[in-house]
Amino acid sequence: MSIELEIFLETIINGLTLGALYALVTMGLALIFGVARLVNFAHGDLFMIGGYALFVLLGVEGMELPYVLIVPLVVIVTMAFSWIIERTVIHRVINQSWRVHAVATLGISIVLQNIALILFTTDPKQTPTIFSRQIIEPFGVRMSMQRVIILVVVIVVFLGLQYFVRRTKLGKAIRAVSQNRDMCAIVGIDVKKIVMITFVISGGLAGLAGALLAPLYSVTPMMGSLLTLKGLAAVVLGGLGYINGAVFAAFGLGIIEALFSTYVSFAFKDVIVFGIFILFLFFRPQGIFGRRVGL
């Protein structure tokens, strides 16, 4: 294999792993927007909570839990946090305008970041696992096993989410609420309860992202901020509320970003990402898949 072909292949793999990172964050954002029309600016902070939960659980002396057991625990922790946030703030503002949603979730974000700052200081925390240390070389591209796990988990979670919203009773109720909340209320669906469940699932997805990605990066109070913005861009590009579209857009953004970083400039990759975002807003504001809002 020529070196240029090897580099190209490596770039695509980089793009896919980056896309997987965005997809994990984006799925939760798209889900909660689809159901509650809530743009959750604190979503990245739930991702951060996932990272810190992993850090704490990995460090529990005397227990030394295996990583595969810690990941579901992290998801449970972030779901619990999401439930508390939903009960204390979200359900009080959910029927208000998007402006109130934005201010409320930004406020939650600031509070969570500052709590993390007080509890863990600003020093980045490392959360290595046996998988993040294990290096493999598929097609001559050196990468951590953790990246392969992330890719596989994203596909499994995506398919699982599809099955959940299409085949289960609760999933169907979530889809129904995403399409017509008033009608759902009339036919006896507890809309507020569905919003609460969706918010908690969305938080769990952010926590899963934190547990999977933290071993590759480092955990800091601000780690979720830029991710939230990029996740939101993917949600809009995919078509507001469409999980399929959001995941497609997340991988698209990841690959474009990787290609641009390798062949043009890493420094200006975000200019390209948000440039594409703005172009879409001009020419296809409903996004790639969007025609109407719904799951």
Binding site: T11, N14, L21, M222, S225, E257, S261, T262, F266
Partner: peptide
């Protein structure tokens, strides 16, 4: 150049 707080440097490292 890499922005502060960048999480994934792999694409730059490939370059």
């Amino acid at each position: 150049y890499f922005d502060l707080g960048t999480a994934d440097y792999r694409a730059g490292l490939t370059a």
